[in-house]
Design a protein around this nucleic acid. Structure first.
Lengths: 350, 350
DNA sequence: CTGAAAGCGCTTACAG
DNA sequence: CTGAAAGCGCTTACAG
């Protein structure tokens, strides 16, 4: 391992001061063009790269964003990581990734703070809001991704958040199911303390209420494959009182439901029961699932996250929420309107 | 945003020197127990956290590992990220995540080097080995994860690598297929320049050769869903000359093959054709796929990665390769031995 | 446009 | 066990 080459080494070779070397690597600094040229040549010769750590210490900007997630089995999150990482790289930022169960959240917090990250993105539905508030108290901008803080304000601060229009998305699904003739509509919730799950359920209920319907049944899958399976089994235990549609709080659980309904309960989707998810993960489009779902616009969510982050890094203390529209993606898991129903409403058909 | 509290502030409050504060936060440093106590109390009072950036500058250790990946759609990699991240967190290290297409690899490299990472893990089959060699030249330990450098040595250095026993895994699959009576065995390669794909194919061919067989056909799917679909279509174009088994270089492509065979070609798996993958991603266990595959032991691979990394960070310059055993996971996509064949070999059955 | 100097927040010999 | 001091590799007023 060769000794690290520093700005001083380059300065010596290029016969300039160390300050000049620094300027030659600072966009917009005032250096004569030929000086800069000479410095860059020397730097290339020595294999010099500015030390970002030293720069961070003096500028008090690390250009690092902490990204906190709890689990990646739900394919929605790898997609988020990929897009967020690439976008931030383009902005000249980098991503320090923390995987955290809710239990060791405190240690994670300490680590993040010690690394002097310029901001934090919490992209997980299962992290405590207390953690977020601690960061804000430490003066570090936090953006909640795909969730909302449980307490929106604390000590005069508020937590920024980027979410889909979950309630509107839920309503879209409710309207689709109702207009296709479903009357016994069940809801499979994610985590009871997750804002995403709540809002999607509220949207569903809005649509049901507008049609004078109520939730037929309700289960909780904790956004987990195995738990979703169990909940589905319970929901469909009584053959005489089966739901005719199941709306799941995300695709990950919807796929678990699909598998369980087909394999273990011998039901056909959508003939016996319709299934709808939320997210539009890549697997939803696979022919085996062909899942009708609500697409979260990850690109727009990532853009909004960057905007909120940079606003706050730039000193604008105002936290705010941004809400991104989502769109219904109709595929094959919702039963089409029955014939008599179609006749009934034929004028409405587009 | 409150002003940052530093070791000096704590020193003032605890009525000690700034050096003492530093020692109180350095495990193993010599401080009187009650002094340490007083300092920690003061620190807690002020909300002090040591600045990891400043520490890195002086210790010349950032305790950051750069993790470079190209894409996360193959679910194998999110699993790797999750486990690697958590293991390194436990070691007191953190992960700076870089997503890189092969094209912008150079920029990525510069960034990594500027951030003074203590080591780099390249966990992607599609990154150039030139990139890896550049890092080694810069004196930063590199471990290839799930691949091997194209040129193992350069300028006296070699690149450490952690891989599964891919050739043995490929042989296992070949033996399974042959012993179950398949005779027209096709191979769906990943990328032509990926060591994983090569070795698995070589293992398959070993098994075929031992049974006096040859590859029946061969396609290339570039580890991509859409390309795998296209390759499968080509492989099965001629109904008179169809493979009776298809071994895919990873599960991601095997699932694409399954979907294509069933939906577009109307073939039944395993009655018409057997399909085997490699990795054992979570989806392989889903009932819709129930995919027979070779499991890569991610836990062992992660452990080996840490070992190699820390060896080299500790100054042992020797790069070396570690190879982790993998195991055949038999599920439902391989046709069982035909009756006459079974009779023939009945004594061998375990 | 350029250089000398101060300083970012720490760690770590070196004395005592 | 403790403190004063040097220094990690940069940036950035401040003069010139």
């Amino acid at each position: 391992m060769k000794a690290k080459v520093t700005a001083h080494d380059v300065a010596r070779l290029a016969e300039v001061s160390q300050s000049a070397v620094s300027r030659a690597f600072t966009p917009g600094a005032s250096v004569a063009p030929d000086t800069r040229e000479r410095i860059h040549t020397a730097a290339r010769q020595l294999g010099y790269r500015p030390n970002a750590i030293a720069r961070s210490l003096i500028t008090r900007r690390s250009r690092i964003i902490g990204l906190v997630m709890s689990y990646l089995e739900n394919q929605f999150y790898p997609v988020v990581i990929e897009q967020l990482c690439q976008a931030l790289q383009q902005d000249g930022y980098h991503v320090l990734l923390f995987i955290s169960d809710t239990e060791d959240a405190d240690n994670v917090l300490m680590d993040i703070l010690q690394y002097q990250v310029d901001g934090i993105v919490m992209a997980s539905t299962t992290l405590s809001s207390a953690l977020a508030n601690d960061c804000i108290d430490a003066g570090i901008p936090v953006v909640m991704f795909n969730r909302v803080a449980q307490r929106r304000t604390m000590g005069g601060y508020a937590t920024s958040a980027v979410t889909s229009q979950n309630r509107a998305g839920g309503r879209l699904v409710g309207e689709l199911l109702v207009s296709n003739g479903h009357r016994r509509i069940a809801w499979l919730a994610g985590a009871e303390n997750a804002s995403t799950s709540h809002e999607r359920e509220a949207g569903l209920c809005d649509a049901l209420a507008a049609a004078d319907l109520q939730l037929h049944a309700r289960g909780v899958g904790h956004y987990d494959f195995a738990e979703a399976r169990r909940a589905v089994l319970a929901l469909f235990r009584d053959p005489a009182n089966r739901p005719d549609a199941l709306f799941c709080a995300n695709d990950h659980m919807a796929i678990a439901a699909l598998e369980t309904l087909r394999t273990e309960l011998g039901l056909h989707v959508p003939r016996d029961v319709s299934v709808v998810g939320f997210d539009n993960v890549p697997q939803a489009a696979w022919p085996s699932f062909d899942l009708t779902t609500v697409q979260q616009n990850v690109g727009q969510m990532v853009d909004a996250t960057r905007t909120l982050l940079f606003e706050q890094i730039g000193g604008q203390v105002l936290a705010r929420g941004v809400t991104v529209p989502c769109v219904l993606v109709e595929r094959g898991t919702v039963r089409a309107r029955s014939v008599e129903y179609q006749t009934h409403k034929t004028s409405e058909t587009t």
